[in-house]
Write a protein that binds this DNA or RNA. Structure first.
Lengths: 251, 251
DNA sequence: TCAAATCCATTCATTTTCAATCAATTTTAA
DNA sequence: TTAAAATTGATTGAAAATGAATGGATTTGA
């Protein structure tokens, strides 16, 4: 995880919480105590927060301002462009599945209540935003994986069986012409797999860093989905274009 | 709990109460007498309050503002006392169901990871806290009701059928000796009903305002649960004590 | 007033948190 | 490609926070 992303997460946390412990942030960002301490030291110097023993405290200042850090980082920008395009594919009245993960999370900003869509998601971090938007939403039941905020496990698969989707939007960790779509956790892979089975159309949202990567658990062959990305090396282009649908969003 | 958090709680308490005893604060913050004494010493030095024998009293200094805005905090503290007692009933290794709602929400603060419990909940607002605490948790699948953050509907009932609970903790809107437990939304009532069916023991957490109230949808007869509350009118006491288990937590 | 009960300050051992440092890795620049 | 710079996680002794215990002070009520 990038430094700026962590900083953004910490600031977000303090917007909602007043005080936050170091241990919480370690879990949230999946890094070490040392790193969080450094982050806090930096953010304190920048007047974003006040350090206290065991954590940090909100400061009435910079972070009272609306979304400064938000949407500013290059990485997030890239994801937002992809997410925006993905959202534009949704039609009125669609029933869609939204996978857990930050890329998919960005999509929610581009959904509107009056599209009259129905959303099903296994992403716990999406819930708040969906509710605030007033979008008709269903959550998948099952085990809540702390690190990613994804609902997984056998319960999740059963729970999903109640639904059918017009479109399904997934994040992945690796895209490879031979090994297909992959992700580190087999249980998360199983959920994505099931989502694909239950959906008429599947879209994989991926920034450039995901291409030619292979992770542990296979989700599906590359032909199982349409890839939405924002840039592609020329040599990759040929390779992928032969085998699957791919939509490249220009900057 | 962080030191600054305790300090804030104490100050909040004094905004509302004029004087507060050490014992109250011990209960409120779930810490030791020593810690509270140290907190009071510090806050006195900072001119936030004046220590008196047995506790502390408000000072017309820094926190002089009447700040009546916090009508909610009083309620919250009442709920916390009830919630703490409820949490104390949980045994190592228990599988428990946590209903949606603010009273139940307070319980989470008193759960610990090393109790090795399993939590199932339909309360979306509980998720964050549960994950942060590192407690093994499952979410009920189904429709996310925006106003209350409860998961409801047929999907929820199906999803819950996968589980059995040692104990089940519910919030309600009305408790009446004749009409039993009631709540405004029939769909939420159905979830609570199902939780009762799936649990060995059921506890209803209720502050004084819930007694002798009747809401729209019936959940169960009054004998279906043990009520946990913090105060009870004398005339009510007789009435209820005949018909059901009730545990009154003293201040 | 006196005795019992409660409350308090102090001390101590334990636990948690902290800052500083270092080696390993990753990123950047040349 | 190589070297410099930045980032990271682990380690370590110091500092802070905590809960319990002790004995002295204060309050209470008979």
């Amino acid at each position: 995880m990038l430094t700026v992303e962590r900083h953004k997460l910490i600031i977000e946390k303090l917007k909602e919480k007043q005080v936050v412990t170091i241990q919480e942030l370690v879990k949230l960002t999946n890094t070490s105590e040392s790193t969080i301490r450094r982050d806090l030291a930096f953010l304190e110097k920048e007047k974003y927060l006040k350090r206290v023993h065991g954590g940090a405290e909100r400061l009435q200042g910079k972070l009272a301002e609306p979304d400064v850090a938000e949407k500013s980082t290059k990485f997030i920008q890239e994801k937002r462009i992809i997410a925006k395009h993905a959202a534009s594919l949704i039609e009125k009245g669609d029933c869609i599945f939204l996978d857990a993960g930050t890329t998919i999370h960005q999509m929610i900003d581009f959904l509107t209540k009056d599209q009259n869509i129905v959303v099903v998601t296994n992403g716990l971090h999406h819930i708040d935003k969906l509710l605030k938007k007033g979008i008709r939403s269903y959550v998948v039941g099952g085990f809540m994986k702390p690190t990613t905020g994804a609902v997984i496990g056998n319960g999740a698969l059963l729970s999903m069986n109640q639904y059918r989707f017009d479109k399904c939007f997934l994040g992945v960790n690796g895209i490879h012409s031979e090994f297909g779509y992959t992700t580190p956790d087999p249980e998360e892979a199983a959920v994505k797999q099931r989502a694909i089975q239950l959906a008429r159309d599947t879209y994989v949202l991926a920034d450039h860093s995901k291409f030619n990567e292979i992770s542990f658990a296979k989700i599906a062959d590359i032909s199982a989905a349409t890839i939405i990305t924002d840039q592609l090396q020329i040599e990759q282009q040929d390779l992928f274009l032969q085998k699957t649908n791919i939509e490249v969003v220009e900057q």
